[in-house]
Amino acid sequence: MILNEREKLLRQIQSEDFALYETVLFLDGHPHDEGALAFYRAHRDMLEKLKHEYTKKYGPLTIYDNQDEKCWHWIDKPLPWEKEAN
């Protein structure tokens, strides 16, 4: 499957998000694991960078990052459950 630029960036975000979430579940039960904490920091920083780039190019991922002063892009299509969004 050929992915466009947006889809490629979204895949990266989803994979970083997944790595982070896995770490979070582990850390909940092992709050002093320094290795897991280092992994968490690295992936959180990476995710932040990727989400910043995505938001700037393609619009908000959360209600807190609408950038346009003239329009509320939060409601724009495609919606997450539509094929075109994935």
Binding site: I63, W74, I75, D76, K77, L79, W81
Partner: peptide, 16 residues
């Protein structure tokens, strides 16, 4: 209800 809503404004309101 969101999934069958045809208008983006309504989907936004239902989500939020």
């Amino acid at each position: 209800q969101r999934y069958s809503m045809p208008y983006k404004e309504v989907v936004g309101i239902l989500t939020d």
